[in-house]
Simulated scan of single mutants.
Amino acid sequence: MTTEFPHTEEIKAILKDKADFVRQDGLNYLIPKWKRFTDNYADNEELIYEWLNEMDARKIIDEILVILPNTESAKITEVLKAIDTKFIEKTFEINECVWSDKVEKENKYDRQKNWYYYRVNQNLFESEVGQFTKRQ
């Protein structure tokens, strides 16, 4: 595994309750995972549980970004910009949080900050008929 991104004790503390492979490699696992998902599956995934797993990975990246020094955070944000743009191009915004209203409220998800929880692709939209409505 490449160590392109920092993996400090502070980052490890954020990841203490995550899966072993996430704890072990941190951003060096999460960012390539987000890129692979965006490149290969963001436009055709149809399983809600897989989708939620990927969105949670993106949220963990955000949790790490806020503790990094500004220079490091800026570098990673620049890397994420292209990946996020591609994800946005392959999806559309919905009115609901993909996790449900209950989870949204419990975790205080915000449409601006946690924007990825408010987007789906057409396949997922169709497989979860009645769960989501497109945002106008």
Rank of each mutant, 00 (worst) to 15 (best):
E104C: 10
D43V: 05
G130E: 06
G26K: 01
L47N: 14
N107L: 14
D39M: 08
F132M: 04
K33G: 11
Q24V: 13
V103P: 00
W51M: 00
N44R: 14
A82K: 11
L65E: 08
V79S: 12
A19F: 03
I83V: 10
F21S: 08
N40A: 12
K81G: 13
N114L: 04
E9W: 05
I88T: 10
Q131G: 06
K86P: 08
N114G: 01
T3F: 14
Y49I: 09
T38S: 05
W34V: 12
I31R: 01
G26I: 03
T91F: 00
E46G: 15
K102T: 05
E10S: 07
T91R: 00
A42V: 03
I60P: 06
Q122S: 03
E126A: 04
D20W: 11
W99F: 12
A42G: 05
K90M: 06
F132R: 04
V66L: 08
K86H: 13
V66Y: 07
V66E: 09
K90N: 15
D20Q: 12
D56F: 08
S73T: 11
L15G: 02
I60S: 02
E9T: 13
L65S: 07
K59H: 11
A57D: 12
R119S: 02
T71P: 03
K81W: 11
P6W: 06
L65F: 08
E104H: 07
R36C: 11
R119M: 08
D39P: 06
T38L: 02
G130A: 08
N123P: 10
N121H: 03
S127W: 03
K81N: 14
N121C: 07
V22R: 04
I94W: 00
R36W: 14
D43A: 15
D84H: 15
L65W: 11
Y29E: 11
D20A: 15
I64M: 07
Y118E: 07
Y49R: 09
N95L: 08
W115V: 06
I60Y: 06
W34C: 10
V79C: 13
N123Q: 11
T71F: 08
K86C: 09
T85L: 15
A57R: 13
R135P: 04
Y109H: 03
E93N: 11
R111D: 00
T77A: 11
D20K: 14
F87H: 12
N53C: 08
N114D: 14
K134V: 10
Q136S: 09
I31M: 01
N40C: 10
I64E: 03
L68W: 02
F37P: 01
Y109N: 01
L47E: 13
V22M: 02
L30R: 01
F92Q: 05
E93C: 14
E72A: 08
H7V: 01
R119N: 03
